[in-house]
Simulated assay, not measured.
Amino acid sequence: MPAPINPFKKSLKAGETVFGCWLGLADTFSAELMGGAGFDWLLIDGEHAPNDLRSILAQLQVLSASPSHAIVRVPIGETYLIKQVLDAGAQTILVPMVESAAQARKLVRDVTYPPHGDRGVGYALTRAARFSRTTDYGTTADAETCLLVQVENRKGLAALDEILDVQGVDGVFIGPADLAADMGHMGNAQHPDVQGAIMDALRRIRAAGKAPGILSTRDEMTRDALDAGAQFVAVGADVLLLNSAALALAQKWKKPTR
Rank of each mutant, 00 (worst) to 15 (best):
M221R: 08
L226I: 14
K13H: 13
A31R: 03
L202H: 11
F39W: 04
S216L: 09
P4E: 11
L42M: 02
G117P: 10
F8C: 09
T92W: 05
P176W: 12
L226H: 06
E144I: 02
T126E: 08
A177D: 01
G229M: 07
L215H: 13
E99F: 00
V239M: 05
R203P: 00
D200Q: 15
A181F: 02
R258M: 06
T139R: 14
A3W: 03
M97Y: 14
P2I: 06
I44P: 02
K10T: 13
V85N: 11
D110N: 15
D193H: 03
S100R: 06
M221P: 00
Y123G: 01
G77I: 11
L147H: 11
A26Y: 04
D52H: 10
L42D: 00
T79K: 15
D182L: 05
P176Q: 13
T257V: 14
R223S: 10
L33N: 03
L94T: 03
A14N: 14
F29A: 09
E152N: 06
D52Q: 09
S66F: 01
V95D: 09
E78H: 14
A88V: 04
A158L: 04
D142Y: 09
K9I: 03
N243V: 05
K10M: 05
V149D: 06
P256L: 06
A189H: 08
A158T: 03
V149S: 03
G15M: 12
R73S: 13
L53A: 14
Q150Y: 04
M221H: 15
I71E: 03
T217I: 15
A26P: 02
